[in-house]
Design a protein around this nucleic acid. Structure first.
Lengths: 208, 208
DNA sequence: GTCTATACTGAGATAGAC
DNA sequence: GTCTATCTCAGTATAGAC
């Protein structure tokens, strides 16, 4: 076959999104893609590296949009203050756009998050972008002590990861066009409130 | 052996915390516990049910403390308003106490979170407590629309799960006594700010 | 009731022929 | 580049000894 590699990638992406990474065996993939088992190891090396290439081809455009939006936000702010809301929106809007065009990608991310595979993938594919956003966030929150700032970033990552990939029960399976946009607006409002919250007081809640 | 079951539970707990659930094979457990492979299936039925019993015996005291603290907070509030901070603290303080006494348990929770096994375990072992806390939170935030409230709970769960189980890089491996307490104070401050944030405005961030 | 020995199925990985 | 055959190692199931 001419494009064995492409067929493996496309089939794997679909099956991973539908059934999860762990639950999809290489033998299922080769059956549907009509290729040989060893072809996967020839082209990718392992199941995990197959996942890596699969994420890479989706993550690149998202990252490019993020950088572009962030630069625009920074340019508009000029020498003045930077609003946390604007920075957060610049980071999340490209995911929203991708979600509307290609719902399968979001399902895939959700699956990977649920299976605990996101952290490693984020490390490999989103790190450079995250560094830039961290700097912008720090500029938007100049009065926050460094330690507190880093902890709040940590909280944010937890909320974001959980939200990009899943919704509360009541929202149902809908996920129609535009849903994702409002989800992000809610998240941005919540996170902005969290980042601007007063510093914690050491409150004693003794446990017997 | 007299207490095969206990030895399996103790060994599994240690190995799951050290290497993760997926990475620990039943054969490793039986080797260290010096029992037979089939004994696990005799006593527990499957690897997953072994994990379940293991979590159950740790989760029960935490849940009891949570209920007790929550009742105290509610009693102190009387007919007056309920502070989000107090409710959040009542929920998290027992985890902090457990963390200080038994660091291995927190590592285990972290592992399970990283492997995407927390949601199912939470569903099975923490659901009744969560229902009560949800009600208390709703009472503490009477002006928040239902939909917005549920979304903010969703954001909270993400931040909490991520924080209970892991820390930003800079904090190192320390995890000394009391560390966990301050971590929770920071999280409570952040979440309270998020819950009290103004409702989101539909802000347009167009993506080319 | 408890536990042991052993076999079964399906996973990912690999060596080497073509 | 591709495919066959095979390897190792999971979790699971069962028959039967004490």
């Amino acid at each position: 076959m001419i494009d064995t590699k492409q067929r493996i990638l496309d089939t794997a992406e679909r099956l991973f999104a539908e059934h999860g990474y762990d639950a999809t065996s290489l033998r299922q993939i080769i059956a549907e893609a009509e290729v040989n088992l060893a072809a996967i190891h020839y082209h990718f090396g392992s199941k995990e590296e197959l996942l890596d290439e699969l994420i890479l081809r989706k993550a690149e455009p998202v990252n490019e949009q993020r950088i572009a939006l962030l630069e625009r936000v920074v340019a508009q702010a000029g020498m003045g203050p930077l609003a946390v809301e604007k920075v957060l929106e610049a980071f999340m809007a490209p995911m929203s756009a991708t979600a509307d065009q290609n719902p399968q990608f979001v399902r895939l991310m959700g699956r990977l998050h649920a299976e605990g595979r996101l952290p490693a993938l984020i490390e490999r594919h989103f790190q450079p972008v995250i560094v830039r956003f961290r700097a912008a966030m720090q500029r938007a929150l100049p009065e926050l002590p460094e330690q507190e700032f880093l902890w709040r970033l940590h909280f944010m990552i937890g909320a974001m990861a959980h939200t990009m990939c899943g919704a509360p029960d009541f929202t149902g399976v809908s996920g129609g066009r535009g849903d994702f946009q409002s989800r992000i607006e809610r998240l941005v409002a919540f996170l902005s409130g969290g980042f601007r919250a007063p510093l914690p007081q050491a409150v004693e809640v003794e446990v017997k």
